[in-house]
Nucleic acid binder design. Structure first.
Length: 563
RNA sequence: GUCCCAGUAGCUCAGUGGAUAGAGCGACCGCCUCCUAAGCGGUAGGCCACGGGUUCAACUCCCGUCUGGGACACCA
């Protein structure tokens, strides 16, 4: 576990120690089912202390003792434990048997020194150390601009990558490029038609960007127009592919989203790789032939139908690529493959998991599929549907132009992906409370302003100016408590693959800070002499700025020093 | 028909089995001659869709019902 939130783990260990002592002394019956781990809760209500545990309630049944009696025994044992009694200033039994714990001031100071000493590393942990994760997201066809359907993953996927890395995982971010198949040929045909000024294929691509591509390509390669039909289509296709992929990379870069690997679907069929994959699957015994086609018997593992890999005409079905790609990832050494798919692909979940099973893997461990619901975008109260350039829906680039990278990313990340969301452009452009990204960034900028003033006034702050005994105001306690939560928020966001938890935490932290700021004067007033309290509060501000900056970095959103 | 997701304040939505279910907006009332008002405080507003079950404890887990959205090719 991380060393960041030390005090909490110390108490958790102390409770376990106390329980085992109580059992061995006979105070609690040996039949009592003591858990292996205890996780302290953070009570919502401040009257319930800094931490609370309901362990006494949970043990009531198996011990046959009333919960409050167990709580009383526990309280006594904790008070007798030197390490614990020093760390806590109060242990209260409340309600049906909750144990409410209040930290001693010195223990609270420990959080601040940890934050200041670890700096940008505060929040990182090793909960996923040694786990090699392949994180695949966006994976758009290279046949057009990235649109609204891709934006959510561009932001959430990138943030999840950062969160997983912070939890110690070895993360590779991968973009799967669907660069083969019918769609690519239609793409080439469409560009060629635009170049020649003839009718485009019915089911082809019709956006204005096709004309742009055609002009660009013809400008540098006028000879493409006069090639023999198939060669011409191929030439336009490959040139258009290169331009479009470059454009996607550029826009994703603007979005502050980065990939380690751009994986080409075509490459799955080079150097006999597909046959190698097929052989591997055959060895596992779930491949069969029927009606001249080659199938994978995914129904062995709960899929509703078997899937064709090689069609009876000898061509590859899309599932052939899925299968080979899966094998490729596993052979490249990844323990966990995370797929981030749109809601329109949720039907893939069963077959991908079945595929993992067919490959001899554990679908509950080696593969993790996240389904993102759709995003709508509103402007002037109306849904935006059409994009002039793409001919379909709003592009990622247009979204960035409208609201900026920070607002776009933050808003996309702050909701769990399994709820459909609506982005209101007018709200995202507003500079008020209703726009959470500004609320959070403003807290950071505000602190930076205070610290600039502190420096001007010669107020010392830093790890040697914590003075925990002076930070006794309720708002100060709240703030310190919130800061200490960060490491476990990061760990749970990584474990649950839910980066939105970082954003929600951030909003909570910013709110706690603003309230602290309103109630606790940081710098000397008028001709007041600088004191240790000023230094202590400035140090608390510095610690808060660090945690806000670390959180924002994890979302890929900037932390401005002035606004 | 089968499968997935959702249903929480007037609106947009948080809420990893715990105590009195939260935030922002909208409504109403307050707070800047001194650290950033892009901020803070207060009031009003809830059968957590409905019915069962599991549990010491359910908005949370399980089953069913209703409503809304989406998916179900030898397409990619």
């Amino acid at each position: 576990m991380s060393s960041d939130s030390g005090i909490q783990e110390v108490i958790e260990a102390g409770i376990l120690r106390a329980l085992s002592d109580l059992t061995s002394s006979g105070a609690i019956p040996a039949s009592t089912q003591i858990p292996h781990e205890i996780t302290l809760e953070r009570p919502k209500n401040r009257d319930h202390g800094d931490y609370a545990t309901s362990i006494a309630l949970a043990l009531a049944k198996s011990s046959g003792l009333p919960p409050r009696d167990i709580a009383t025994l526990l309280k006594g044992a904790l008070q007798a434990d030197g390490e614990i009694s020093v760390a806590l200033s109060a242990i209260d039994i409340a309600g049906p048997g909750f144990l409410n714990l209040t930290l001693a001031r010195a223990s609270q100071g420990g959080v601040l020194s940890t934050i200041l000493n670890r700096g940008a590393d505060f929040g990182k942990s090793s909960t996923l150390a040694g786990v090699k994760i392949n994180l695949e997201f966006v994976s758009a066809n290279p046949t057009g601009p990235l649109h609204l359907g891709h934006t959510r993953w561009a932001a959430v996927g990138d943030a999840l990558g950062r969160v997983l890395s912070a939890a110690g995982a070895d993360v590779t971010r991968e973009f799967y490029v669907n660069d083969r198949g019918v769609q690519m040929d239609l793409f080439g045909e469409s560009i060629r038609a635009a170049a020649l000024g003839i009718a485009r294929p019915e089911s082809g691509y019709h956006g204005a960007y096709i004309d742009d591509l055609a002009k660009l390509i013809v400008a540098s390669n006028p000879e493409f127009k006069t090639l023999e039909l198939n060669e011409s289509i191929e030439a336009f296709r490959d040139a258009g592919y290169a331009l479009q992929l470059a454009d996607q990379k550029r826009v994703l870069g603007e979005m502050n989203t980065h990939f380690d690997i751009w994986f080409s679907e075509r490459s799955l069929y080079e150097e006999n790789f597909f046959n190698h994959c097929l052989d591997r699957l055959k060895k596992e015994g779930h491949v069969f032939e029927l009606d001249g086609a080659v199938w994978l018997r995914t129904t062995d593992f709960g899929d509703d139908k078997d899937r064709v890999m090689i069609k009876s005409d000898g061509s590859f079905a899309y599932f052939a690529s899925d299968s080979a790609y899966y094998i490729s990832k596993r052979e490249r050494g990844f323990d966990v493959l995370i797929y981030m798919l749109g809601a329109d692909h949720h039907g893939y979940v069963h077959r991908l998991k079945a595929l993992a099973s067919c490959a001899g893997d554990d679908p509950t461990k080696n593969i993790d599929i996240l389904i993102g619901q759709l995003v709508k975008i509103l402007e002037n109260g109306e849904e935006l549907k059409l994009s002039k350039r793409a001919g379909t829906i709003i592009t990622l680039e247009e979204l960035i132009e409208k609201v900026g990278v920070d607002a776009a990313r933050y808003t996309l990340i702050r909701y769990p992906v399994d709820t459909p969301m609506v982005m209101d452009v007018d709200v995202l452009r507003s500079r008020t409370n209703e726009n959470p990204v500004y609320y959070v960034q403003y807290a950071h900028a505000r602190i930076c302003g205070v610290l600039r003033n502190a420096t001007d006034l010669g107020i010392a702050y830093g790890v040697d100016q914590i003075h925990p005994e002076l930070l006794e105001h309720e708002r100060e306690r709240e703030l310190i408590g919130a800061l200490g939560e960060f490491p476990r928020i990061v760990a749970s966001a990584a474990e649950l693959r839910e980066p939105h938890r970082i954003a929600r935490y951030l909003e909570e932290l910013a709110g706690v800070y603003h309230r602290f700021y309103a109630d606790c004067r940081v710098l000397p007033l008028g001709d007041e002499q600088p004191s240790s309290l000023h230094s202590a509060r400035a140090t608390l501000c510095r610690s808060t700025a660090q945690v806000i900056a670390n959180s924002l970095a994890m979302l890929g959103v900037s932390a401005p020093e002035k606004m």
